[in-house]
């Protein structure tokens, strides 16, 4: 299922840096617009997200970055009156094509939310539930399979050492930062290709934020991560690519270093230097 399209010419908004090395595009937006009733939230966004990279979306509140993020796993469609135009292509397939099942989309594209929202279940079941209901667990050797899976995901989310002796405890008994890592572990259990993170640190203290950022760094390469953040320093620290949004428009998209050091757009510069936002 790897996209065979040569990608060098398919990067309209990315500045070409040096040689036209083949870029593995996992998610592509083509003229994506989102509106709630009369109110337009996102206007005609073109964007290509590279596989294995960390891409951050920044911009002031109400700029449409979270709205756009939620179109990537079809979490927008529970909002009454929402309308999505344009195409969102995952490995070349339109997520909004008529024969695409949103449940299937969310299996491949996981999500971590702003406020940690573990299930009011044991730590173990928080992770096991997704694979179980999706029929990913073989019937024979079920327990052993799940034990392995839980350990692997908790290790993957850098939480194993803290919780390995109390997997039966309720996930809500953990601290806020641990809960958020549990939510990341829960997303990993589905073996998604992309993980969407909607301001995952905004409810956390600096120490927990640090741990999540370290974790994002560890997940880099194995997963494609798209992170919405209010915190520009965070975007600068964790991401390879940064997209700056302003009132529903994608103003600038490029390598994080370049965008923060030498923004091409005046509005980007004003925002990252703190002149508004």
């Amino acid at each position: 299922m790897v996209s065979p399209t040569p990608s060098a010419d398919a990067q309209p908004v990315t500045p070409q840096t040096g040689a036209a090395a083949a870029v593995d595009v996992v998610l592509r937006c083509e003229q994506v617009s989102v509106s709630y009733g009369e109110k337009a939230a996102v206007h005609s966004v073109d964007l290509a997200v590279e596989a294995g990279r960390v891409t951050s979306f920044i911009g002031p509140s109400g700029c449409g970055k979270s709205t756009l993020l939620r179109t990537f796993n079809r979490m927008n469609e529970f909002i009454p009156g929402v309308r999505i135009d344009g195409r969102v292509l995952y490995r070349g397939q339109d997520l909004y094509a008529r024969d695409v099942d949103p449940v299937q989309v969310r299996r491949c594209i996981g999500m971590v939310f702003q406020k940690p929202n573990p299930f009011p279940k044991s730590i173990y079941n928080n992770i096991a539930w997704g694979p179980l209901i999706n029929g990913m667990v073989p019937r024979a050797g079920r327990r052993g399979y799940l034990d392995d899976l839980v350990e692997r995901c908790l290790r993957g989310a850098a939480l194993w050492d803290e919780v390995k002796d109390r997997l039966d405890e309720n996930g809500l008994a953990l601290s806020g930062g641990q809960q958020q890592r549990l939510c990341i572990a829960r997303a990993l259990a589905m073996e998604p290709e992309i993980i969407l993170m909607d301001e995952p640190c905004s409810a956390l203290d600096p120490r927990s934020t640090q741990r999540i950022e370290d974790l994002i760094d560890e997940l880099r390469g194995r997963y494609t991560i798209i992170i919405v953040t209010h915190n520009m320093q965070q975007a600068a620290r964790v991401s390879d690519k940064t997209a700056f949004f302003y009132v529903g428009e994608l103003v600038e998209f490029g390598d994080t270093d370049q965008l923060f050091r030498r923004p091409r757009e005046k509005r980007t510069e004003d925002y990252i230097t703190g002149r508004f936002g």
Binding site: Q104, R106, G110, P118, F119
Partner: peptide, 8 residues
């Protein structure tokens, strides 16, 4: 949302 996001 948590449940839907893991493909429920």
């Amino acid at each position: 949302q948590a449940a839907l996001a893991v493909g429920a």
